[in-house]
């Protein structure tokens, strides 16, 4: 093995480790819902190559209104799925789509794009 190969190996393994850490183990952005005067927990979510914030904390038993603003045309994010709440919604580009639900059970519920690539989770406490 020559020097170049050694360098390539080290850089490659380092890169692989970085990819694993970056996508799986790095800290995520968490937001708690804000309750409006009417008792609805409201959260604004921007959809652009992912969901930000992507971890949303809400309280159990109070209605939740999620406003998804899709800030891109990329077809990846055009569908929103929340299977635990039987929700499949088309998100029009550059528009806000309201999704309302009532979390009755505590737990972590994922929401994803149509193909399950983009992910976020609703943490019900």
């Amino acid at each position: 093995m020559d020097t170049t190969a050694i360098i390539v190996t080290i850089v490659g393994l380092g890169l692989a480790a970085f990819v694993l850490w970056y996508f799986f183990f790095s800290p995520r952005q968490t937001t708690s819902a804000v309750s409006s005067s009417s008792g609805v927990q409201e959260v604004d979510i921007t959809v652009k190559g992912g969901y930000s914030p992507d971890i949303i904390e809400v309280e159990r038993g109070k209605p939740v209104q999620l406003s998804f603003y899709r800030d891109e045309e990329n077809s990846c994010s055009e569908e929103l799925l929340m299977p635990d709440f039987s929700i499949r919604r088309d998100l029009p580009a550059f528009k806000t789509t309201l999704v309302e639900l009532l979390p009755e059970k505590a737990g972590t519920f994922t929401f994803t794009c149509g193909m399950g690539m983009l992910r976020g989770s609703l943490v019900v406490k």
Binding site: F23, G49, Y51, E72, N74, M117
Partner: peptide
């Protein structure tokens, strides 16, 4: 563009 946006969110897609 999509890959970059995803990367910023620590998300990777097709």
């Amino acid at each position: 563009v999509s890959a970059w946006n995803g990367f910023k969110h620590r998300a990777a897609n097709m």
